[in-house]
Simulated scan of single mutants.
Amino acid sequence: MSSEKNPLSPRIDKNGNLDILIAAAECFMEQGYHAASIDDVARRLGSTKGRIYHYYRSKTELFFDVHREGMRRNFEAVTPVMKGPEPAAQRLSAMFRRHALSMMENLALEAVVVQGVEMHRFSATTPEQRRTLAELMTVRNDFESLFKRVAYEGVEDGTIRTSDVSVAVKVALGAINWLSIWYRPRPSETRDDREILADKIVESIMQGLNAPG
């Protein structure tokens, strides 16, 4: 995270080309990385594939930027509630809740984050790709560390009780990240519906930590 180039910085201007990333994320989620093609992304965009190749040399580079955007949204969701006067358990609960909502509201992007990196760790062949994958894995670890940091504070202030913070946080994030596998929004679903589901998930997680939800 401290390198000269922020690993979350996209190769392109997100504001002008976010639709490329969203279309690619939807293709990767629905078809899988190997089956989806640049042609598929272009068709979803209603454009030529030349527009995509103007910014990306390969499907792998496009995948990396989808991952970056998904992680950027994760950080953006949870960091505002990390600090404050509230007990650590309350802040950790808020972080889990925001992450769950981010998963549901950015489903295609987050599905790529959850399902894709491990696959690419073994399929990337160039030194540049391997360097990028290492950066992206570091970003994911940094994200997990945010939750560990607050959980340790909870152990110290007595609002969280667990024998192993690292395992507890991994289990909790795994439960939330699994939304990318089983969750699909209903046609009539509202923000309130997603908040209710997020609350139920977080309540179960916090009960496992012997802490108030």
Rank of each mutant, 00 (worst) to 15 (best):
I205K: 00
R161N: 03
V112Y: 11
E118C: 04
V41P: 02
P127W: 10
N6W: 07
D164C: 02
E153A: 14
V165Y: 01
A36I: 06
S58F: 03
L197S: 07
I22M: 05
I181C: 10
K148V: 15
A24I: 05
I12K: 01
C27E: 09
L92R: 02
L146Y: 00
W178D: 15
V41S: 04
M104N: 04
G116H: 02
R91W: 00
S47R: 13
V81H: 12
A100C: 15
P127S: 12
G116P: 02
S2Q: 11
T126K: 10
A89S: 10
R44N: 08
R44G: 12
V112M: 04
F28I: 10
R11T: 09
E86W: 05
V202D: 01
H34K: 12
I22S: 10
V155F: 05
G50F: 03
R73W: 08
F75V: 06
K59A: 06
M206Y: 06
K83Y: 14
A134M: 09
V167F: 11
I201K: 00
I176R: 01
G116N: 09
R131C: 05
F96V: 12
E110D: 13
S58H: 07
S9F: 14
R51K: 15
F147N: 00
T159S: 15
C27V: 11
D192K: 15
A134R: 05
R43D: 13
A134H: 08
D157A: 10
M95C: 13
G46L: 01
L62N: 06
R97F: 15
V165Q: 01
Q207M: 12
I181T: 13
I160M: 01
R194F: 02
D39Q: 10
P127I: 08
G158I: 05
E203F: 05
T138F: 09
H99K: 10
G158P: 07
F75A: 02
D199F: 07
R140T: 14
Y183N: 14
R68L: 03
M103A: 15
A88M: 06
V202L: 01
E30N: 11
P87R: 04
M95T: 08
L197P: 03
I22R: 06
A24V: 07
R194K: 15
R98W: 11
L173E: 06
E86R: 13
V41A: 09
G84H: 04
L179I: 12
F75Y: 06
S163H: 10
G158D: 00
A24Q: 07
E76S: 12
E203V: 14
W182S: 06
R131A: 12
A124D: 07
S123A: 13
Y56I: 03
I12M: 08
P187T: 10
L45Y: 09
N15G: 04
R97V: 06
N210L: 12
V169T: 06
W178L: 11
H120P: 08
D164G: 02
F143Q: 01
E144A: 07
V167H: 05
N210I: 05
R186Y: 08
G213L: 13
V117M: 12
E4H: 10
N106F: 03
D40A: 14
P87Y: 03
D142E: 11
D142H: 03
